[in-house]
Computed example of a mutant assay.
Amino acid sequence: MMKRARSWWNKNGKETPELSKANIPQHVAIIMDGNGRWAKQQGMPRIVGHQSGMKALKRATIAADDLGIKYLTMYAFSTENWTRPKDEVDFLMRLPVDFLAQELDELIEKNVCVRMMGYEENLPDHTVKALREAIRKTKDNTGLVLTFALNYGSRSEITDAMKAIAQQIESGDLTTDDITPDLIEKHLLSKDLPDPDLLIRTSGELRISNFMLWQLAYSEMWFTDIYWPDFNREHLYEAVAEYQRRTRRYGGLK
Rank of each mutant, 00 (worst) to 15 (best):
D225T: 01
R155G: 06
A130L: 13
F99W: 10
D182T: 07
Q168I: 06
A239M: 05
D66H: 09
R46E: 02
E120Y: 08
M74P: 01
R233D: 00
Y218I: 13
L95W: 00
L104Y: 10
V89S: 03
Q244L: 00
G153K: 00
L104S: 05
H126W: 04
F223L: 06
R207W: 09
L104H: 12
W38E: 04
A63S: 12
G172S: 04
D140E: 10
G204I: 02
R136I: 11
L95V: 15
R6D: 11
R233L: 00
P229H: 01
P96N: 13
R136L: 11
L104T: 05
Q215R: 12
N141Y: 02
W82M: 01
D65N: 11
R4K: 15
M93V: 10
I47V: 14
K55V: 05
L19F: 07
D98C: 04
K70G: 06
K129L: 06
A161G: 03
Q51V: 14
W38Y: 11
D65C: 11
K129D: 08
R37T: 01
N10Q: 08
I200K: 05
R248P: 01
A161Q: 09
H126I: 11
H50N: 08
I31E: 04
K11S: 15
P96M: 07
G68C: 00
Q102P: 05
F211S: 04
L57C: 13
N23G: 06
V128W: 12
W8M: 12
I31F: 02
E157V: 05
K110N: 11
E220Y: 13
W222A: 03
T176G: 03
V128L: 15
D197T: 06
A101T: 12
D195T: 13
R249L: 12
K139Y: 08
K139S: 14
T61D: 00
Y71R: 04
E18Q: 14
E121P: 03
K70E: 09
L199Y: 10
H126L: 13
S156N: 10
L188N: 02
K129A: 12
G34F: 02
A161I: 08
Q167A: 13
D66A: 14
P25Q: 01
D192Q: 11
D140V: 15
A64Q: 00
W9D: 05
K254P: 07
L146I: 12
T202R: 12
L123N: 12
T61H: 06
R155E: 05
